[in-house]
């Protein structure tokens, strides 16, 4: 086995910034809080990730994209580990990523400090016109992590990233 050239943990984190969420390609897996840890174990680079929703069909693509990214960086022995503890929460989405979600018309999840059930009935602001005169049309959406809303002010349907 060839040894991974002298990479640093910092370099790896930096490179991983380029790996986008396959379903929301304006944000990275790092910004979304999906990549939890990067470490060396002997010669292997071990990347720990956690799913947003455990049935997310994009998990395999994410793992493949991480592997490709690190191979391009020169890493040879790469291991992706999936963990469920602590469970992913939308509180981990970085502020910059929240803005990017809003920028593509995807309302960011409301902040909740730990129990998402308390914000489920809160008004949701339209990502286009900021009006809170909106109504939920479906608590499910085109991916497991999204809900569908309608803005009564600008008459635009939009999606919200579910609080979790």
């Amino acid at each position: 086995m060839t040894k991974t050239p002298a990479l640093t943990i910092d370099q790896i984190w930096q490179a991983l910034e380029a790996v986008k969420d396959p379903e929301i390609p304006v944000v990275s897996l790092v910004e979304m809080g999906i990549i939890r840890d990067v470490a060396f174990q002997q010669d292997a680079v071990v990347v720990t990730m956690t799913p947003t929703f455990s049935g997310c069909p994009a998990l395999k693509v994410m793992a493949d994209d991480i592997t490709t990214c690190l191979k391009n960086l020169g890493a040879d022995d790469i291991r992706i580990e999936t963990v469920f503890d602590p469970p992913w929460t939308s509180e981990w989405i970085k502020p910059a990523a929240r803005e990017k979600l809003k920028g593509i018309g995807l309302a960011p999840p409301p902040r909740h400090n730990g129990d998402f059930q308390i914000v489920l009935l809160d008004p949701v602001a339209c990502p286009y016109c900021d009006s809170e005169n909106t109504s939920m049309r479906n608590s499910f959406g085109p991916t497991p992590c999204r809900m569908i809303f309608y803005c009564n002010n600008c008459q635009q349907p939009f999606e919200q990233f579910k609080p979790l």
């Binding site: 929703f53 455990s54 479906n138 608590s139 499910f140 569908i148």
Partner: peptide, 20 residues
Amino acid sequence: LEEDIAFSNLCLDEIGHATI
């Protein structure tokens, strides 16, 4: 349509849970 989407999501979640 909304329920078509909802049921497909429920289905996807449950398959994910079964796998785990």
